Simulated scan of single mutants.
Amino acid sequence: MISNRSDRFSQKSCVIGVACIFLSTFSTASDTQKSLTQKADAAREESRELEQEQLQKARDAAGETQAREKKIYKKTQPNDWEAEQRVKAQEQFNERESREDKYLREAREAVLKERKIPKPF
């Protein structure tokens, strides 16, 4: 009898072959799915880090702006320095006046006292 080569492949072996191809395709799809999930997770993490970085930059910029505003505000308010200088000047004036009063009082007391040094003959 003449044998047919197509008989070599039985129906059972074809099913097994198709199953192997299906499983390898499924495995590849599963690996692709895992890889896509990992990429999505990495992208989410990167997005979160970027957002935190942007928020920190915004906070830093707001702090610098407040510092500049305070500095400018202090420059525009010279009245505080002037008032402080006026108070100092008034205190010095009062101190000088009290010293003068003290010297005048001592001089009056000295005039009123009798001399303790005898007059020469």
Rank of each mutant, 00 (worst) to 15 (best):
M1Q: 05
M1F: 04
N4G: 03
N4K: 11
R5N: 07
R5S: 09
D7V: 01
D7S: 05
R8Y: 03
F9C: 01
S10N: 10
S13C: 03
S13A: 12
V15K: 11
V15T: 04
V15P: 00
I16K: 09
G17M: 11
G17W: 04
V18K: 10
A19R: 03
A19C: 10
C20K: 12
I21Q: 02
F22S: 11
S27C: 14
S27K: 08
S27G: 15
S30G: 12
S30Y: 11
D31G: 06
T32E: 09
Q33T: 12
K34Q: 08
K34F: 14
T37M: 13
Q38A: 15
K39P: 00
K39Q: 09
K39I: 03
K39H: 02
A40M: 10
A40H: 12
A40D: 11
D41R: 05
A42V: 05
A42R: 09
A43S: 07
R44T: 15
E46S: 14
E46H: 06
R48C: 01
L50D: 12
L50K: 15
L50S: 15
L50C: 02
E51L: 07
Q52L: 12
E53T: 01
E53K: 14
E53N: 09
Q54A: 11
Q54D: 07
Q54I: 04
L55M: 07
D60K: 06
D60W: 00
A61E: 15
T65R: 14
T65Q: 09
T65C: 02
A67I: 06
E69N: 14
E69K: 13
K71H: 08
I72E: 11
Y73P: 00
Y73E: 06
K74D: 03
K74F: 03
T76K: 15
Q77I: 05
Q77E: 01
P78K: 02
P78A: 02
P78H: 00
P78N: 01
N79S: 13
D80K: 15
E82H: 10
E82A: 09
E82C: 02
A83D: 13
E84M: 04
E84Q: 05
Q85Y: 06
R86V: 09
V87G: 01
V87E: 05
K88F: 00
E91P: 00
Q92N: 10
N94L: 07
R96W: 06
E97V: 02
E97Q: 08
S98C: 03
R99V: 03
E100C: 08
E100R: 14
D101A: 08
K102S: 13
K102H: 09
Y103L: 13
L104E: 14
L104F: 07
R105W: 06
R105Y: 04
E106Y: 03
E106K: 10
E106Q: 14
A107P: 00
R108Q: 15
A110Q: 07
V111L: 15
V111I: 14
K113G: 04
K113Q: 13
K113D: 01
E114N: 10
E114D: 06
R115P: 01
K116H: 04
K116L: 08
I117N: 06
P118G: 05
P120V: 12
F121R: 15
